[in-house]
């Protein structure tokens, strides 16, 4: 133990750089949902804003993204996913100066390939990264950033196909129900609806809202639906009526026991 102490009598200085004024960045809207025909170029404008007191350099780059079955966002390099639209995107600039305490419009163009092989919805993300100014700390040449992502969906018109399936409905523990839904279509779908808990006589006792969440094309999503706090112990039949934003309704039934 003496040895490390001797060594650290010299110096241990750890520094985290977190962007300061330069890290403050806002985006509106943070999501674009574009629909176009093959060969068409769509251009949308978003606002990048800051209340920072000095100008900031903003770097623009692209990424792919997807959701895991629990709905967690996974960000991946551009054009690495099958349903990536990153290659179709053309941001207005690769970097720009965002003036102090200002809002600046930024254009993003999407050119849909003239290729019949593409159908349905593709997605990607445009990141705006704040490049901090050089720091005066000795020996430090660190680029520290804060990034904000613009989510982009691109749907090719007249190629949309619906389709959804209630894959599973179970009670993982005493306090939750889980619904697994598959999107077998080629566009993003959003969920809605409710799960009703009925007692042994068939009387509706509780009604649980299904959260409005997306299910990406050709993927599955597991939704955890907490049982109500203070629910009376006993036997119930859980009746799931889940709405697919494209018009379908998925129904399922599950007998459950609440201890």
């Amino acid at each position: 133990m003496i040895e490390p102490m001797k060594r650290f009598l010299l110096l241990l200085l750890l520094i985290f750089f977190m962007a300061a004024h330069a890290a403050e960045i806002g985006l509106s809207p943070p999501r674009l949902e574009l629909v176009g025909r093959p060969g068409e170029t769509l251009t949308e404008t978003v606002s990048i804003l800051t209340t920072a007191s000095s100008p900031q350099q903003i770097q623009v780059d692209l990424s792919d993204w997807t959701l895991d079955p629990e709905g967690n966002l996974l960000v991946l390099p551009p054009a690495s996913l099958e349903f990536s639209s990153a290659a179709w995107l053309e941001p207005e600039a690769g970097d720009f100066i965002l003036e102090a305490d200002s809002s600046q419009e930024f254009r993003v163009s999407v050119t849909i390939p003239q290729d019949a092989a593409y159908d349905g919805t593709y997605q990607s993300m445009v990141f705006f990264t704040v490049v901090p100014p050089p720091t005066e700390t000795q020996g430090v040449g660190v680029i520290t950033t804060t990034r904000i992502g613009l989510t982009i969906y691109v749907t090719i018109a007249a190629t949309e196909q619906g389709g959804s399936e209630l894959v599973d409905f179970f009670q993982p523990d005493d306090g939750n129900l889980t619904v697994a839904v598959a999107n077998t279509g080629n566009t993003v779908m959003r969920l809605g609806g409710f799960v009703e808990l009925r007692d042994e006589e068939g009387n509706s006792k509780y009604r649980l809202e299904v959260p409005d969440v997306p299910v990406l094309r050709e993927s599955e999503r597991e939704l955890s639906i907490p049982l109500p706090e203070g629910i009376e112990p006993g036997f119930y039949v859980a009746l799931a009526l889940i709405e697919d934003s494209r018009g379908g309704i998925l129904a399922g039934e599950l007998p459950i026991q609440v201890p």
Binding site: F8, L12, T144, R147
Partner: peptide, 21 residues
């Protein structure tokens, strides 16, 4: 845990924000 070399270290911490899609 004691295997650190003495000196100055610099780490960059980056926060990435996105809306849930």
């Amino acid at each position: 845990d004691g295997d650190e070399e003495p000196g100055s270290y610099v780490f960059a911490v980056e926060f990435n924000a996105e809306i849930n899609p």
